[in-house]
């Protein structure tokens, strides 16, 4: 049972079955780890903002660094107009980061390794960005599919490509995070299984790989959260500033 590398992704019910209008909305281990991430985030921010010291304590410094990091990311990619969306990007980045990092603990569950979770985020961002674009620019927002400076002959093809690329945004956004997390954790599990099956003599090599992969996975966990947030910023930038 433990040898199956996909077992770690199994979702199971915790507590009673909750059913609303015939849909199963039970509290699962995925929900549990979302909740743990949320609690950790809120704890970090609570202790980070508890006392307003001129010279910050470590936790305060952490929350302020996080704030400055995301503020800089948004102002670099989406400009000043994106300021109202700062809390959303902040929450998004922090939540995905904590879910990814929490998944790095042994025997824990990685919330972001499920396509439905990342797809929910990606669809929300996609729909939200489209709504923002249409409310700001009206029908002119459709110009995003018609790049300027393209020969008339190529325009229909380019437009079709642009539309496809626009529509594939939620898919690429969600699959990138989900596939990265799933692949990384599966690989860790497979190498971990090899350590056991190859035993004392041959097990050292996969163990070394396992250790190296853990480091890599921590990097990936941070990087994917960053990529998710920065792509959201870029989509927002497209909707706010209409570069085409």
């Amino acid at each position: 049972m433990a040898a199956n590398p996909m077992h770690q992704f199994t979702v199971y019910k915790i507590g009673p079955k909750i059913e609303i209008m015939g849909i199963d909305l039970s509290f699962t281990n995925a929900s549990l780890f979302m909740l743990i991430s949320a609690v950790l985030i809120l704890l970090l921010l609570t202790f980070g903002t508890n006392e307003k010291k001129l010279i910050p304590s470590k936790v305060q410094l952490l929350s302020e660094t996080l704030y400055n990091f995301i503020a800089k990311m948004i102002s670099d990619t989406a400009g000043k107009k994106a300021k109202p969306y700062f809390p959303f990007i902040f929450s998004l980045f922090v939540f995905i980061l904590f879910c990814n990092m929490l998944g790095m603990l042994p025997y824990s569950f990685t919330v972001t390794s499920h396509i439905i979770v990342t797809l929910t985020f990606a669809l929300f961002i996609f729909i939200g960005v489209t709504i923002v674009g249409f409310t700001i620019h009206g029908f002119k927002y459709l110009k995003i599919f018609v790049p300027s400076g393209v020969p008339i002959v190529l325009l229909p093809i380019i437009s079709i490509i642009e539309i496809i690329s626009y529509l594939s945004r939620p898919v690429s956004l969600s699959v990138r995070l989900f596939a990265n997390m799933m692949a990384g954790h599966t690989m860790l599990k497979v190498f971990g299984g090899f350590v056991i099956s190859l035993g004392l003599i041959g097990g050292w090599l996969p163990l070394t790989f396992s250790v190296a992969l853990t480091g890599l996975e921590i990097l990936v966990a941070f990087l994917q959260a960053y990529v998710f947030a920065i792509l959201t910023c870029i989509y927002l930038n497209d909707a706010l500033n209409l570069h085409h």
């Binding site: 979702v11 019910k13 909750i18 849909i23 199963d24 909305l25 039970s26 509290f27 699962t28 995925a30 929900s31 979302m34 909740l35 949320a38 985030i41 809120l42 809390p87 959303f88 929450s91 922090v94 939540f95 919330v111 499920h114 439905i116 979770v117 929910t120 985020f121």
Partner: peptide
């Protein structure tokens, strides 16, 4: 468990947001 995950994600993320 898709609806459950999406539902709890929305609830918890909204709370954090």
């Amino acid at each position: 468990y898709w609806p459950s995950q999406a539902f709890w994600l929305i609830v918890i993320f909204s709370l954090i947001y």
